[in-house]
Amino acid sequence: MTGISVRGFAVASATAVTTVGAAVGVASGDEQGRSTEPVEVVAADATLLAEIPAGANAQLHTASLTQQAESQASAADADARRAAQEAARLQAAEDAHERRAEEERAEEERRAAEAAEAEAAAAEAQAASAEAAASAPVQSSYSVADVQALARQMVPADQFQCFSNIVDHESGWNYQATNPSSGAYGLMQALPGSKMSSAGADWQTNPATQIRWGLDYMDSRYGSPCGAWDFWTVNNWY
């Protein structure tokens, strides 16, 4: 396309024909065709002709439009890529957040299950201890061997050695041991000894009652007899 206006071309053509016709009439000597008025040549629409890019100018104009279109397309592609990258980044962040939430939920469930198992095991051990203490015959006196036999029945097997270590250091397995300076009493040297009444009214004479109280104390304060023993080795008391 040269961009030449059709209207401008028609005006220019009509003007050319009028001009040629006037010239021919004069040359033929036709008096009737001759006019005493000067011939007015109407020029083509200057505005329309000025709008017409021709030749190399038209090619440059077309190339400029093409370059603009290509630049706009390239910018649109870049915007689309950036939008896609941002969407991918947001999706990845959301996926990571969901994975972390799932992992945290799984960890909480695992801990809850472990706590429930530990609680059930403690309750079972406590019930076994109470059953053993209840079934133990009441005697007027107990030897060290008798007391240790009761402890083996009442203390979980994997905790017995730690329990025994503490009793060895505190009372030497003498259920009537009394500290003359502090008043601590019994196998575990409870201070005061009367706190063992929570396990039974016969706390002064029945080593099974003292063992049951000692287990409850170690479990509640240190988690287990072995936890109590770990503390004892550092501090020489529990």
Rank of each mutant, 00 (worst) to 15 (best):
A73V: 13
T66Y: 06
A75Q: 14
R81A: 11
E98F: 04
A136V: 06
E117K: 13
D146S: 08
A69F: 05
A120K: 11
A125V: 03
A127N: 12
E108I: 05
A118K: 12
F163W: 07
A120C: 08
F163N: 08
A87H: 08
F160R: 09
A73K: 14
Q139W: 08
Q159E: 14
E102G: 06
F160M: 12
H97G: 13
Q159P: 13
E124T: 14
A83N: 14
D77E: 15
E108L: 12
A87P: 02
A157T: 04
A157Q: 09
A75M: 14
A127L: 13
L150R: 01
R105H: 03
V147G: 05
E94A: 14
A78R: 07
A128L: 10
A83C: 08
A120F: 10
L150E: 02
A87K: 10
V147T: 11
L150V: 04
Q67G: 09
Q153D: 03
E94Y: 03
E70H: 15
A73M: 15
E104Q: 09
A128R: 10
A92E: 11
A113P: 10
P137W: 10
D79S: 04
R82H: 10
A75I: 13
Q139H: 12
R82P: 05
A101R: 02
R100D: 09
Q67C: 09
